[in-house]
């Protein structure tokens, strides 16, 4: 599993699921790394072909809700449409109503040949935290796998 300055698995001693920290130098970078961490937990991201494109608009009243809604959407697309994504372009807009995320995701449907490591079934609220550090964002989360 890839572990670098974009995201890392925190090996909590006795947890049945997976605890991850994801970083981003700005909000758009954070969403890109969230997408890649999500996909890498499930499969080897390099084995995903960028065959299909999907544009999404996700809203949230703050950054935390926007992240929750974005990950929920990734889980939904995996289960309902069998889609996994390798890459994405993100644009964030802030209005009076809150945040809007415009995403253009590229990836493929899950096929028999795709090496599956595990499934992400839900994003829990347990230990879920978004913090803005001096020059980057950090998200801590636990996936139910």
């Amino acid at each position: 599993m890839i572990q670098h300055n974009k995201w890392r698995v925190v090996d909590s001693k006795n947890i049945a699921d997976i605890n991850i920290e994801i970083y981003g130098k700005n909000e758009e970078d954070l969403f890109k790394n969230i997408l890649q961490a999500f996909t890498e937990v499930i499969t080897k991201i390099d084995s995903i072909k960028e065959k299909e494109e999907l544009s999404l608009k996700i809203t949230g009243k703050n950054l935390e809700e926007l992240i929750l809604n974005f990950i929920d959407q990734l889980i939904y697309l995996k289960d309902a449409s069998f889609m996994l994504f390798r890459n994405g372009k993100f644009k964030l807009m802030f209005t009076k109503e809150g945040y809007s995320l415009f995403a253009l995701l590229t990836g493929q449907k899950i096929t028999n040949g795709l090496p599956i490591k595990t499934d992400i079934k839900a994003l829990t609220l347990h230990k879920f935290k978004v913090v803005k550090l001096k020059n980057k964002f950090k998200v801590s989360l636990v996936f139910d796998i």
Partner: peptide
């Protein structure tokens, strides 16, 4: 509707994990 869509595509499957 999201639950319905996920349910329809996964009915009669074992799943993963444990």
């Amino acid at each position: 509707q999201a639950a319905v869509d996920r349910g329809i595509s996964q009915l009669a499957t074992l799943g993963s994990g444990n």
